[in-house]
Design a protein around this nucleic acid. Sequence first.
DNA 1: ATAGGGTTAG
Length: 623
Amino acid sequence: MWRVMVISSTPKRFVHRSHLQRSGFYGFRCWIRAFSGRSDDYREILRSGLRDIKLDDAVDLFGEMAKSRPRPSIIEFSKLLSAIAKMKKYDVVISLGEQMQMLGIPHDLYTYNIFINCFCRRSELSLALAILGKMMKLGFDPSIVTLTSLLSGYCHGKRISDAVALVDQMVEMGCKPDTVTFNTLIHGLFLNNKVSEAVALLERMVLKGCQPSLVTYGVLVNGICKRGHTDLALNLLRNMEERKIEAGVVIYNTLIDSLCKYRHVDDALDLFSEMETKGVRPSVVTYSTLISCLCNYGRWSDASRLLSDMIERRINPDTFTFNALIDAFAKEGKLLEAERLYEEMIRRSINPNTVTYSSLINGLCMHDRLDDAIKMFDLMVRKGVLPDVVTYNILINGFCKCKKVDDGMELFREMSQRGLVGNTITYNILIQGFLQDGDYEKAQKVFEVMLSSDVPPSVMTYKILLDGLCDIGKLEKALVVFEDMQKSGMDIDITTYNIVIHGMCKAGHVEDAQDLFCSLMRKAVHPDVVTYNTMISGLCSKRLLDEADALFREMKEGGTLPSSGTYNPLIRAHLKYGDKESSAELIKEMRSCGFSGDASTISLVIDLLYVGRLDKSFLDMLS
DNA sequence: ATAGGGTTAG
């Protein structure tokens, strides 16, 4: 069965036969070495560990072992096979297994497990199951390792229900799943976004008397948080408390990070104090996460309080902590402080890394200091810190923002010469740069290079193309891109529709915009405040005041809160084409919502005041 | 099992 199976499987495996044949040559080399008096005993190599062994040497070693008499034990063979499996050379392992079979070396539970694992990794589940059948016939009971291998096979083959069933079966058979089993299955569930199934699985296992390890809880909490279900993860924390399992610092860190990411900063701070009361000591990660979050929300004094707190408790700030601070300060335009922090880092012998410099360069670019950004880039190179794609993207974007797109392109070439490959964002930046420069041909060219280099365009790429084309008045071309996008089956979100609707209105095709707007309902895409604002100002530009008013009412009835950008165009239209009374009412409503007249509304009112069509009370009402 | 930098409509 073994032979039939191996021969009937993919021809790719024969590639590795030649590998085995070559081992004859290497074997010869060993002979020569033996004559020259050097001892190359396979036992010595096995004992000294196979961690860093090269594939060729491992195959060579196998040849030695096969020839050696008395024959090495099966344990020694399985050590070698598992080392090759760790290199992910599953074909070679399977090939060697076949060799052993032909040489009459019988397999044992361990080697069978290795083969099952290899077949599973190669998504050849049926072959894995065939081996399972064979080994059971020979009287080897599958161990937990065997079952966990199969489990990962099911998970990678997207056969999630089979995977869950297998674990249940294991429990029925009296085989307690261990941490690896749990983690494998939970990982598989997450790969398929089955968040609640993952939680349910753990609960069921607990009921059946299994005790998941802290790492398993950690894997679960992390996966749930990464998918945005922080509330579910918090429930899990409470469940752990009920079961008197103390969540470790890692679990708290994960939850705190998730709360921060989803803007629940104060909940994150509450959880931080809660972990203290529970006796879990925060780590540098806890502090770095919170400090970064607080800085990003502009809560500088809270952040600095935490920083002194951690230093006082001798939890030393590390590169992450400093990078979080430097990044936030640089973005805020506090570049002096950012550079002072950089110096402080060096004073404390914490090495600035690529991220540190990238943040500094980004801050300088954001605040129109391109020359200083270039200097910083040169400094990092001089210090031996290698720029990566992100660093280049930041600087290329800096060039584009300063209308030096050709220089940005030059930098892109330089980065390619240094062996770095541009990614989607790199191309997005360049395409946007050329479009904003009004150079449609070059933008088109970059887009073509992107496609031919197999860099996948993202929704963002299309949005940039759409926006850029609409902006330079090439609505027709934009609509072609829009069609391509629809055909490609991408998720087209409301922001994309907003760009197209805006483009149509700008080109004076307000009716087309209205049609597209109406089609949103059929596609179950909800217009947002920007959609309404764009449509309302489009209608206003065509003097369609009644329709604009109707849409304004529809918007409020549908629960979309108007913004300053809703009121101002509407007020201007009423001032120009409508009556004073409704203008005054709109202004009152806007003021009661906390908005005020923008620059163009105020300048319009001043103009109308000047020609005597309005009185001064309007100007007072506006702000 | 946890934390950091880049493109983003009116």
